[in-house]
């Protein structure tokens, strides 16, 4: 599903952000990617979304060879990946329904299907009742659920969550992680970048630890490895 072969990425400023990393993630896996700031996590996410191209090495995502992917094919490729961010990135001027429907509109899903898919996705994240609310009327946890619904409404095989609990309190963090686990059980490959030691240690999933652009540990049922 996701394969990285000896991938390096250097920015024009100098030091490499990723230094020859190789990685293999199977379909349906749940993977945590952990590491301190500057460890290369964000660069890895950007490479997987094809926001960046590697300086060297090969990346395959869902059978797409990203090093050969033409610019005009990027939109179609990205429809394979749902993304969730720490700051939710919801459209503040649109209500919950419109925020989720937005993902369907931009890929031109017929309105009839959209009217079916959006409420069903909102039910799944537990926000069916609040479909008319604006993001500012929701709590952080609810906003992240909307973001999750938007990421999943197009049924992507992969979900990338970049610090999904970074702005949430422990209760909401756990609820979001439970949702991610459910999504994973339904067959979606889930990659979660996080700093949340408690959650990583409790969930006993595969944990990839990064430091200064390299993978320092990759454990099947791992925990959060301290820097020191």
């Amino acid at each position: 599903m996701i394969i990285l072969e000896d991938v390096s990425k250097s920015y024009s400023t100098g030091a490499p952000a990723l230094n020859g990393i190789s990685l293999h993630i199977e379909p349906g896996e749940f993977v945590f990617i952990v590491g301190d700031s500057g460890s290369g996590k964000s660069t890895l996410i950007k490479l997987l979304l094809r926001e960046l191209t590697p300086t060297s090495g090969k990346i395959f995502v869902n059978k797409y060879d990203l090093s050969k992917l033409k610019r005009r094919k990027i939109p179609k490729f990205r429809r394979n990946i749902g993304v969730v961010f720490q700051d939710f990135r919801l459209l503040k001027d649109r209500n919950v329904y419109e925020n989720v429907a937005f993902a369907q509109r931009v890929i031109e899903v017929p309105p009839r299907e959209m009217r079916k898919n959006v409420p069903s996705m909102l039910s799944m994240v537990g926000l069916a009742e609040k479909y008319k609310a604006r993001p500012r009327e929701l709590s952080g946890g609810e906003q992240q659920r909307v973001a999750l619904a938007r990421a999943l409404v197009n049924k992507p095989p992969i979900l990338l969550a970049d610090e999904p609990t970074g702005n949430l309190d422990p209760k909401n963090s756990w609820e979001i992680m439970k949702l991610l686990e459910e999504i994973n059980k339904s067959g979606t490959t889930v990659l979660v970048v996080t700093h949340n030691r408690e959650i990583v240690n409790a969930m006993r999933k595969r944990v990839i630890t990064m430091k200064k652009g390299i993978i320092v540990s990759d454990e099947k049922k791992g925990g959060y490895i301290d820097e020191d």
């Binding site: 979304l49 926001e51 005009r72 939109p75 179609k76 490729f77 990205r78 429809r79 993304v83 990135r89 459209l91 937005f102 993902a103 931009v106 890929i107 031109e108 938007r150 197009n154």
Partner: peptide
């Protein structure tokens, strides 16, 4: 700017954006 970047990450074509 943010709306455009969200559209692009969801998989919208340049034309749609």
């Amino acid at each position: 700017k943010e709306e455009i970047s969200i559209m692009k990450l969801i998989g919208a074509t340049d034309f749609v954006v």
